[in-house]
Design a protein around this nucleic acid. Structure first.
Ligand code: SF4
Ligand code: SF4
Lengths: 137, 137
DNA sequence: CTCAAATACCACTTCGGTGTAGTATTTGCA
DNA sequence: TGCAAATACTACACCGAAGTGGTATTTGAG
C-alpha cells in the first residue's frame, strides 16, 4: 500500500524544487538537502527530464529547472510517468476480471476509497504543495 | 499502491474457503480453483496455519479448515499477519518524520483517505465477504 | 503392515526494484 | 585552449519477494 521508492523520491524532489520554482538546482544540492543517494537521484533526474517535467543544463554551472508551470504538474502526472497508472488504479485484491457487476463485498467501499485517493492525486499540483511549509524532507 | 502478492493470495484463498466455512479443503483443490501456483500456495497455507487462521490435518485425507469463526477474521488481521500493519499505515510519500503539526498540503486528504481504507480493512470480515457472490477468483 | 495421498520442510532459483561504479560528454570561465 | 564542474550513459551488484524442486513426515484405508 505504498508508492514505489522512486515515485516517493520524485515527488520529494519536485516538491522541494517547487519552493523556488524558477531556480536552477544542481544534483549536488538536492542530494545534500533531500535524503536520496547521489547516483540514484541523478538517474532519476534524467528520467524526469525525459518525462518533460524538468529540463537539464549540462556543463559547468549546469543543473535542473522546471520545464513547465508547476501549477500544471499534478501528483498523478508524476506517478503515471514513473510507474504507470495501473499500479494504483487496480483492485486491491488483484482480481482484474471482476467488475462492478460481479463484486465482492469489499468492492463498493474499495471503489469509493480508491476514487478519493485518485482524485487527491489528480487535484494536488506542485504549486499547491509549495504553498505549504514542509519542515522535514 | 497495492498489497503484496502474498496478501492478495491469502485473502483470495480464505475468501474462497469462507464460502463453505466448515469444509475441509485440500491444497490440490485450492490450486485448481484459485490461480496460485501449487508450491507457493502450500507454503502460504503453512504460514496461515501458524498464524492461527486455519488448522491443517496431515496424512491421508488431510487438508485445511478454519481454526476459528470467520466472523472474527478481518481483512486487517490477515494483512497484519502477512506483511505487518506498517506497510499500509505509513505516509504515502514515505516521510515518516512529519506529523499532523508539520503537514504538506496532501496530508489532510491523505490522512482522511487512509483512515477510510483502514476502517474498511478492519470492518470487513471473511463472513461478510462470504455473503457476497464472487464469480471470478 | 503397507501404501497412497496428503502436508511440512529446506534449499535453491528467478525476477524486478533499488542502489552503485566508472566512464563519457558537455560547457563556461580563467 | 585547457580545466573544473556539472550532467548522461552503460553496466553491474544487491536484496527481498515470488516462485520452484526435492525430500521427509504424517496418517487413514485396505
Ligand atoms: S469485487 Fe472485490 S476483488 Fe473484485 S475488483 Fe472489486 S474489490 Fe476487487
Ligand atoms: S505531511 Fe502527511 S502526507 Fe505530507 S509527506 Fe508528511 S505524512 Fe505524508
Amino acid at each position: 500500500m505504498k508508492l514505489s521508492k522512486t515515485s516517493e523520491y520524485a515527488i520529494r524532489i519536485l516538491s522541494y524544487m517547487a519552493k523556488d520554482s524558477d531556480k536552477l538546482y544542481s544534483a549536488k544540492l538536492l542530494v545534500e538537502k533531500l535524503n536520496v543517494s547521489d547516483k540514484y537521484l541523478r538517474k532519476l533526474m534524467t528520467l524526469l527530464s525525459k518525462a518533460g517535467f524538468i529540463k537539464s543544463m549540462q556543463g559547468r554551472y549546469g543543473g535542473y529547472k522546471f520545464a513547465k508551470d508547476i501549477k500544471n504538474i499534478y501528483i498523478s502526472n508524476i506517478i503515471d510517468a514513473i510507474e504507470g497508472s495501473e499500479k494504483y488504479l487496480g483492485c486491491i485484491l488483484g482480481l482484474d476480471d471482476c467488475s462492478d457487476e460481479n463484486p465482492c463485498s469489499m468492492h463498493e467501499v474499495w471503489v469509493t476509497t480508491r476514487a478519493k485517493l485518485i482524485s487527491t492525486f489528480e487535484k494536488t499540483s506542485l504549486y499547491k504543495i509549495s504553498q505549504t511549509e514542509i519542515i522535514k524532507f
